[in-house]
Amino acid sequence: MIGSSPIRTFIAHAVLILGILIVAFPIYYTFVASTHSLQTILRPPLPLLPGDRFWENYSTALFGGIGRIGGVSVGTLLYNTTVVALAIAIGKIVISIVSAYAIVFFRFPFRMTFFWLIFITLMLPVEVRILPTYKVMVDLGLIDTYAGLTLPLMASATATLLFRQFFMTIPGELVEAARVDGAGPFRFFKDILLPLSKTNIAALFVIQFIYGWTQYLWPLLVTNRNDMNTIVIALRKMISFADADTEWHLVMVTCMLAIIPPILVVVLMQRWFVRGLVDTEK
């Protein structure tokens, strides 16, 4: 290593720590706010250290406060969001792994047409076709259903491309050996392909779980009933800066509850997360 004098290393550490303070500050401060009383929050500046209302605020938000957020408990919201995030992540992986399997390991008419049809969906994110997609949902009766919240987000080219890419690196000899040993397509998929794809599946799962958890525009459109809201949408409805009724201490608790699960997934599955992001993009 060159240029690693103690002073330079010290500066590097100092800049990094400063950067982390900036990056972490909003989240930390939300936590601090979630442990203070409403009166303290309404009189800025808020102390930099957590207050003594932790149990009170969190138990009120989780178990008390019936009738908040349009009569829906935080538990329901967390449940909805978990269902949506898991369904999107798992559904996407299943759907795309089988279609990538078909495209790589079979030869059939229109194979490449199908591939391109899937590929081009990259250029049609929800944001550019919101109104017509909403209309389709209404016609199919999918408003306020879990299917409506998840199905349209399950098909995307990204996961299919990732699996296709990975499958193409699997040597043909492996397929040949499996066939010589009498393994059919199901057997090959289950006993060889799935175990080989484990890392890719884990990486994709983390990214898609976060994607599902943080959805905003789509849940906003397809849910009318409060008890079908995801926690992100419900939070938006809780906040009102115009009137003084916003119960900020509870909003902050809900904020924490909304960001802790995805943060845990990212931090605990960091290895796969980073792999999923960086390795697949190169």
Partner: peptide, 30 residues
């Protein structure tokens, strides 16, 4: 050159879910 499975119908069934969702929620609205 890639070793493949000879099935004729199976691959269509495998791509069907993704194509169905793609058609209903992407191409039709677009």
């Amino acid at each position: 050159p890639r070793v493949t499975f000879p099935n004729k119908v199976l691959p269509y069934l495998l791509v069907a879910p993704q194509l169905a969702i793609t058609a209903v929620f992407f191409y039709w609205p677009a």
